[in-house]
Design a protein around this nucleic acid. Structure first.
Lengths: 112, 112
DNA sequence: GATAAATGTTCTTTATAAAGAACAATAATA
DNA sequence: TATTATTGTTCTTTATAAAGAACATTTATC
């Protein structure tokens, strides 16, 4: 990540990450897991779990989803089977769309 | 990230990330945006967008959600207002739960 | 109130994510 | 079919995410 990129986020995605973070922390407490216990089970450090539960935008999506999964959160409101079916559906739809997005040429052959 | 941690992911979170990735790519094509255009608008490199759309677990959650937002995907099936309300609701719930999870002491004073 | 567990914060080290460029492969149009 | 935009891949460089430890703070129980 050269050139020190300072990222900006829309309100929407910040809210979404914050919500997910809150849901994770809430679920952990309802399951009566300490941060250390949950971190161990998720295979991450306690520090990272802390950042996840604080809604840090820079955590890898993989570990965030994994933490959410560990405490039983349903992403996309779907169980595993539904998730897989939806994913396949999207892949199918994608395979029908043009493989590359072609911008119409500027000159539209209007030399009449 | 010292000690070279090789992460493992549950099927569930892999499917969830893959679904999100597919939804993003589909939405981009439906909006007729090239990868470069969308990357520019999102403020990321084309290479990163490629990884996002391939479902790379190691992308930051912030940029993934930001890309999703840019093409109009509704995370948690909610608009911004709903998202904020839900977030506040979770914070409130959280404020009522014990601030730390205390494990019951092993010795339960059973010396009678 | 005392105490110990849990949480939060800060530091250093190290593996690696991301930028950016260059090139190859593919596929949409003329 | 030829052309060229788009997509995909690979490389190097650099900023930084994450581990792990150490310490401070908070808070649930005794």
């Amino acid at each position: 990540m050269p050139k020190s990129v300072t990222r900006t986020y829309s309100r929407y995605s910040r809210e979404a990450v914050a919500l997910l973070a809150g849901l994770i922390r809430t679920a952990r407490k309802e399951k009566k897991l300490t941060a250390q216990e949950m971190a161990d089970r998720t295979g991450i450090s306690r520090g990272l779990l802390l950042r996840i539960e604080k809604g840090d935008m820079k955590c890898e999506i993989g570990v965030v989803f994994e933490a959410a999964t560990l405490v039983g959160l349903k992403l996309f409101d779907a169980d595993e089977t539904t998730l897989t079916r939806q994913r396949r559906q999207v892949e199918d739809k994608l395979s029908l769309l043009p493989k590359s997005v072609r911008k119409p040429t500027k000159a539209v052959d209007d030399d009449f």
